[in-house]
Simulated scan of single mutants.
Amino acid sequence: MSYASVFAPGLFAGKVVVVTGGGSGIGRCVAHELSALGATLALVGRKLEKLQAVQAELAEDGGSATIHICDIRQEDTVKQTVVDILAQHGRIDGLVNNAGGQYMTPLEAISAKGWEAVVHSNLTGGFLMSRECYTQTMAKHGGAIVNIVADMWGSMPGMGHSGAARAGMVSFTETAAVEWANRGVRVNAVAPGYIASSGMDHYPAEMAPMVREMAKTVPLGRFGTEAETAAGIVFLLSPAASFISGSTLRIDGARPQARLGYPMRVADEKAQARDGIKPFNGFHRAKLPKVFTV
């Protein structure tokens, strides 16, 4: 089997794309789709074994990737990582700032250290990677950057540190789009909503019932797939988005538009499937998170 992308074969032939957090979840999925479309990947992350596993998958599928161990929160490490990528590939055409993370806790229980850790992971790290890719290579020949944020419109109860960081990344995206446009660099963001991703396998067991109920708050009546998210990222990297910059593409099934007092008419996923309306899932190696199989 191979990745069933909706995009034209060879679309990214000869292009080099950096994917942070490329060892799992959405990062792994988008790396597979870009590779299937001809891109050479530079996978960035903190855990060697995860990156090696994805590198091996890509090789089995006929693709190519280098791996780069990097804590994106460390400025000097980020600078050297981009130097190393350029030494191996000569240029960087695209950057997907996917790395990040958070934990659930109420605002009053978040320590300064915990707040800083989440902000550094979800905001500062993306800024550092973007800045270095821009200054070291994209300022010379252009490029495209896609920042992965989150469904933080309205609020993120229990994840206030992450919501603040993601909102900051949206603002950074809009500013970078203006400042770097004259060098042919486009900067956009993708905001995934409730996505059935491998990251859910790390949630505490007691969260499982709540997670399974979350689809009832989504007007489309289901979780999104990693492939549906990857398709949005690939589109924004592609020539089809050559006049799109400073935008945030939400991939969330209209969840932020649900309003108290308005009767929720959630789509019936089983009925849609009978009518041939199914989630897009072109990722041939995708696995359903464990929370949906118990």
Rank of each mutant, 00 (worst) to 15 (best):
V6C: 05
A8D: 13
P9F: 03
L11N: 01
F12E: 08
V17G: 06
G21K: 06
G25C: 09
G25V: 08
I26K: 01
R28S: 11
R28D: 04
H32V: 06
E33H: 09
T40P: 00
A42S: 13
K50W: 06
A53V: 09
G62C: 07
G63V: 02
T66Y: 06
V78T: 11
T81S: 05
V83I: 11
Q88I: 03
H89Q: 15
R91L: 10
I92G: 02
D93S: 08
D93R: 07
G94Q: 02
G101T: 07
T105W: 01
T105F: 07
L107Y: 04
A109C: 04
A109W: 06
H120W: 07
N122V: 08
G125K: 07
R131A: 11
A139K: 15
K140D: 12
G143E: 05
V149D: 04
D151K: 12
W153C: 04
S155K: 13
M156F: 14
P157D: 14
S162I: 02
G163D: 10
A164Y: 07
A165T: 04
R166M: 13
G168I: 06
S171Q: 12
F172T: 02
T173N: 04
E174N: 08
T175Q: 11
T175Y: 01
A176E: 00
A177Y: 01
V178K: 14
V178S: 02
E179H: 05
G184I: 10
V185D: 01
V185T: 08
V185G: 00
R186Q: 04
V190S: 05
S197C: 06
S198D: 14
Y203R: 13
A205S: 08
R212D: 07
F223K: 04
F223S: 11
F223M: 15
G224Q: 06
T225Q: 06
A231W: 03
L237D: 05
P239G: 07
P239H: 02
A240D: 11
F243H: 12
I244G: 02
T248W: 03
G261M: 11
G261D: 10
Y262D: 12
M264F: 11
R265T: 15
R265Y: 09
V266Y: 02
E269I: 12
K270N: 15
Q272I: 04
G276E: 03
K278Q: 12
K278V: 14
P279F: 00
H284R: 12
A286L: 10
K290S: 15
F292K: 10
